[in-house]
Amino acid sequence: MSTAPALAETVAAPAPRRRGRLLLPILLFGLLALAPLAVSLGMPSGWLALLTRAMIFAIAALSLDLILGVGGLVSFGHAAFLGIGAYVTGIMITEGQAEALLILPVVLGICALFAAITGAICLRTRGVTFIMITLAFGQMVYFLAQALSAYGGDDGLTLYAKSTIAGLDLFSTRTGFFYCVLAALAGCYALVRILVASRFGRILRAARENPVRVSVTGFDVTRIRLVAYVISGMVAGIAGFFLANHTDFVSPAFMSWQRSGELIFMAVLGGVGSLHGAIIGAIAYLIAEDGLSHLTEHWRVIFGPLIILFVLFTRGGIVGMLRKLGGGGGA
C-alpha cells in the first residue's frame, strides 16, 4: 500500500500567498509589453518573433505546470494538446474557416474531450505507469497526425491564411500578433492563478502532497485531478491555436514526445509549481535554444548535458534562484 505522492516534497512550491509574490509577474508582463518598443528602438526584429514563440510555449508550459507543479502529476504527453490545438486550427483554416471565435471553441472542445477520455484512463494509475501512459497517448496522437494524409500526413500542412478575431485582421502584423499572444498569456496566467487559489485548487495542492489524507477528508482525488487535467489540456490547446498562426504550418513534429519533454523542462527550469516560473522557463528555454542553435547545428550535444547538470545540481529553478537572491523570503 503506497501512500507516497507522485512527487517528492522537493518539487512542492506553495501556491502564491503573499502580495510580494505579485511583484515578479507584474515585472515580467510589464517587460514583455515593452518588447515591441525595444524593437522599434533598434533591437533586431527577429527578437519579436522569438519572444512571440516563447510566449506561445509559455502558455503551454503554464498549463502543464497546473497538473505537474500544482497537481504533482508528471504528464509526458502534453505536446499532444498543443498539437491538437494546432491541427484543429490548421484544418479549419484550410477548409476556409479562419475565424478565431469559431476555431477556439472547437479547439477547446476537442482538447477537453481528449483530456477527459485519456485522463480517465491515465489517472487510474500512478507514478511510473502514469508517466508511461501519458507518453503513449501522446504518441498515439502523433501517429494519428502522421496518418492524416488528407492534411499533409508526415510532411505537415502549410497554411495560406491567418485567423481573424471577430472579423478583425489582428494577426497580420507582427506587433498585433505579439500583443494578442501576450493578452492570451496574461489571461491564461490569471485564470490558472485564480484556479490554484480557489477551493478546488487547494484540494488539488493538498492531494499532491497527501492524496490519502485528502480522500479520507471526503474528496474524490481522481475526479479532482481529472478536472485539472482537462483544464490543463484546454489551455494547452489555446497555445496550439497560436502556434499554428505563428508558424503558418502544422506538422506531427509539433506533438513529438521530445516536445513533451521540452515542455516539462520549461516548467522545471523556471521553478515548478510557481506558474510564472513556467513563463520564465519557456522564455529562457527558447532563447537558449535559439542562441545555441546559431552556435552549432549539434546544439543538443550541449543542451542535453546542461539539462542533466541542471537536474543534478539545482533546486527550485530560476524562480527559486531569484527568490534566494531576493533575500530568501522563502516559502
Partner: peptide, 30 residues
C-alpha cells in the same frame, strides 16, 4: 498525516470544505 506545506488553518479548512456548499468551486478564493 497532514499537508505539510499548508498552514494549520488550511489543513483544518480542508475538512470544513468537505461539508460546505460548492466544496470544489473553481473560482472562489479559498
Amino acid at each position: 498525516s497532514t499537508i505539510a506545506s499548508l498552514s494549520v488553518l488550511e489543513n483544518v479548512a480542508l475538512g470544513v470544505q468537505a461539508k460546505v456548499a460548492h466544496p470544489l468551486s473553481l473560482f472562489r478564493n479559498a
